[in-house]
Structures are given as structure tokens and as C-alpha cells.
Nucleic acid binder design. Sequence first.
DNA 1: TCTCCGATATGATCTCGGTCAAGGGATCCG
DNA 2: CGGATCCCTTGACCGAGATCATATCGGAGA
Lengths: 226, 226
Amino acid sequence: MPDISLRDFPLFSQLGEAELQQLESQVQPRDYTARQRIFEMGDPALGIYLVKNGKVKVFRVSPEGAEQVLGVFQGGEEFALAAVFHGGRYPASAETLEASQLFFLEREVLLRLIAQNPELALHMMGTLAKKLQGLVSMVDSLALRDARGRLARYLSHRLPAQPPLVVELPMSKTLLSQHLGIKMETLSRTFRGLADEGVLGSTERGRIEVIDRDQLYRAAGDEVPV
Amino acid sequence: MPDISLRDFPLFSQLGEAELQQLESQVQPRDYTARQRIFEMGDPALGIYLVKNGKVKVFRVSPEGAEQVLGVFQGGEEFALAAVFHGGRYPASAETLEASQLFFLEREVLLRLIAQNPELALHMMGTLAKKLQGLVSMVDSLALRDARGRLARYLSHRLPAQPPLVVELPMSKTLLSQHLGIKMETLSRTFRGLADEGVLGSTERGRIEVIDRDQLYRAAGDEVPV
DNA sequence: TCTCCGATATGATCTCGGTCAAGGGATCCG
DNA sequence: CGGATCCCTTGACCGAGATCATATCGGAGA
């Protein structure tokens, strides 16, 4: 996994060389070990995080301690962007999945950056809008699909267009179950079910072989664009 | 219900008199009857809608025809804001609940407006961020709370701080059930349950009397700020 | 190679909420 | 006044998925 510099973040693709260098000096590198808490839901939202390497999960916790994973972010992605713009508190918690290096960008620095680069604002609105869309899709899954439908949808979204009909899971099945809002045991049974139906092949080691692409799409319900 | 002009939209609170007048000429008034479709999920996102009066629901539909309501918008609110910023398609459908007058604001006009008023961009990012927060809360409800917890949370969020311990539902119970992701019958039983527990009083005519505020908060789990 | 431990699988139950069915009760209208 | 319609309530039953319990797999380290 090669290291990543600021210029590799799509979020900053608009910026010129000079601005990037300036930004470089204002960003705070922070190193984390595996399973380290980055912030807790309710903490004041002081800035955004950029993932240089490693993996971070963002999640909510139920009163009983169950976790719902909102997203897993890795190199080149940023998180907690939205929290900065209503100046309040983080609406979820974040924790590393493995040892990770992040950049922390203070709220004020980000706002100043935007003030100097108006087109950056538009770009960030696009980013926010995409996240919103992702959450709408998540709500749809949770409210309107059963376990089979949720899994099929997750897989079909990540199935590469080109031949190797394989989905590489970016996280463990345990974590995936928390992302789909179903229990591990149920996810396990659901994978098994799809395999028995002939839709999937092996599902080991985070490598999901898809055998019947069309039926996977059908199980996903729809929304899978052409 | 008094009529509302553009200056009454919080979204445009930043704009000066001149800009508002200019905007006035670029906005398209559109009238709808009750239960009329405004756009369908998948339609190209051509612009945003501002609600002058009436009520609009935004929702997703399952393959079986069940609806999940993402939001209900009324006078002074706008919807479909996010869709404009990734230039794609509406990720949900919208329909009037009653006869309504809306303003339609074309994407290009909005973008031009932002270009001329950079601080408007920040304000809109705040709006987007709030919507994102709302969806995160919705995901939390759907994934981590049971019917009782969802309803209690909904009510506690809308309970006025001052004495008349009453929540006025902005929609029918049927619609509310589609908003909370539970069936009408279950919602009815859940209301009944909370009343039997002594948490709620009468729940008739969209007027929910809260008797035991503390227990309502407790049933809501947490997240209810001090 | 052996041991340990976290991740995954599988079986046996339980349960919340969905489904199906049958009323109320209010409002509007002929 | 009777009927039609919409919204809500209540009851009986059922099933997908949660829960509880146990077994197995596979990688890391001694």
C-alpha cells in the first residue's frame, strides 16, 4: 500500500500546486494504532480527517452496545466533513480498524481554504451530496430490504464491470454485518443461502466469487443501473 | 396558513434585497393538486424545489411497493437540494400530500447565484450537513432501535421545551409509520403501549399528549440533549 | 509443529413485528 | 338519514431474523 499525499485526495483535486503546499503546512499528521478511538459521538467537531493509510470505521452505538457502521474509509478518503459545516458535534464515533496515519485539518483552516477557493465549495457540496445519497441508499436497505436483498445489493454495487466476477470485501464479514444492519449469524446464513442458490461461489477470505451475475442483480431488487 | 415569499426561506437568509428580487424573477411557481407526483426517483435532477405552502413527502419505494418516507416538507422548506450538487438523478420520489404551491429553481440559476454569493455556499453546506445528520439519525433508528424506541425518539425530538407537553404530528399516523419504518398496525399498538405505561395520554387527531416526559426520554434511549 | 485466539459457521429456540382479517368511528355527501 | 370512504384500532397467527450455544477454521507466534 503506497503512501498518499494531499494531492491524491479527490477532495483537493481542484487545488493548485501552491495551495497544496500551503495546505501541507497546515495539516496535522496523526498516527493511530489499531482499534484506537479517533473521536466519540457528541465530541465537538473541530475539523475533518483525511486518511493517508490504514482503515477507519465510522459508526453509531445503540444503548445496548450494538454498532451500526456508517462507513469504512481508507487511503485518499476523508471523513467527518459534514460535521464541520454545522459547527456542532460529531454525530457518530470513529475508530481505526488497523494502524493508520491520518491528517487532521482544522475547521478554521478548511473554512479559510474555501473562502480563498470558491470553486472548492462547489466540489465539497458534491462530496456532501454523494454522502447524502449513500445514506439514503442505506435507509432504503434498512427499511425496505430483507437480509438477502441487502447483501445482494451490497455485492452488486461492488461487482467490477469486467470479467473477474469477484468482489473483494474491504472489511471482515463481522464488520460487514454491522454495516448491513444484520447479525453475523444471519449474514453467514445468507451467504450460504446465496451459494446454495448458485448465485455465489466461494466466499472465503473476503473474496466473494459471483457465479450468476444476473440473479445477483435480481436479488438486489433494482437500483442497479445499466 | 399565511403565504410565504422567497425572503422567508432560511436557505436565502443571506441574500440582500436586490438579490432576492432578482431571484424572484428566476424562480418558477408551480401549483400541484393533492397526491400529485413532483418527480420520480431516477429522474434527472434539474433543480430544487421550495415549498410556498402545502405539504410534500419525499420517499423511496421497495420492489414490493412499500414506501419509506425520508421527509415531509412544508412552507419555508426546500427539498432536492443535494441532488443538484452531484448533477445526477433524484435518489427518491416526491409527491404532494395536499394541494401545494412550490417554487422551482433551476440548477443553473442556483449555481450562478452561488457563484455570485460565495457565503451562500457555506450556508448551503450547513443545510446539507444538517440533512446528513438527520439521515444518520434515521439510520440509527432503523438499525438500532425497536418500534417503541423509534416512536419515543421521534416524539421526544418534537416535544416543545415549554409546558404544553403536547406534540402536534405534522402528518397522519399512517404516514408517520412509513417514516419510522414500521407498519401502521404496529405503530398503533406502540402508541397504545406507551399510553398504557402512562407515558402518553390521548393520541387523537394528531395531538399527542405527553404525560411522563422523563420516561419518554428514557424510552428514546439517549441522544436527547440536555 | 503445536497452541491460542479471533473470525466464521451451524444448530435450536425465541420473539418482535409483519400479515391477514375484522371491526369502529369520523367526515362528507347524496 | 343512510351509505361510502378514509383512518385508525384490535385480535389471531406466522415467520424472518435475533439470540444462545457450540463447533470449526485459519493465521500468528512459540
